[in-house]
Amino acid sequence: MDRLTQLQDALDQLATQFYSAIGFIDAHHGNEPIEGQVPMDSENGNIDMEAVQKELAADLVVKFKQIDLLIQRLPGLGVSETEQIERMSQLNKEIKAASEEQNEAVKRQNTLKSRIDNLILDLANEMGD
């Protein structure tokens, strides 16, 4: 996939992570007892909140670094449109030249092939005698 799409996908994933991190903490945080009341039982089960929070934070940092890296590696940085177009016409010329050479080589290949065909035919005739 191209880098710009990767970058945009990463941004969207970051937004999702923002949202789900808050959502998770909101759903699983503990409760501070009000003075004079019996503390509420946590419905957390065995979730180690601190570890989960650390993991969420680490994931966010990783995603952010990924985005940063993608930003730094955008294709064609610092190349102007004119330069790109010049490069394209240069490459076009090179491809044309390469095509001609390729055709020559294929011609040579075919000549050689028919020469070998003839040799094999000669050999067969010789054997048939």
């Binding site: 710009l4 294709p75 064609g76 449109e81 790109q84 490459l91 090179e94 050479e101 390729q102 080589a105």
Partner: peptide
């Protein structure tokens, strides 16, 4: 995006050239 599109085209042309040269 337009910039990237041109850049992709450039690298496609490069690939094409290299393929031809390698075949030759």
């Amino acid at each position: 995006r337009p910039h990237q599109a041109r850049e992709s085209l450039v690298s496609l042309l490069e690939q094409q050239r290299n393929k031809k040269l390698a075949h030759t």
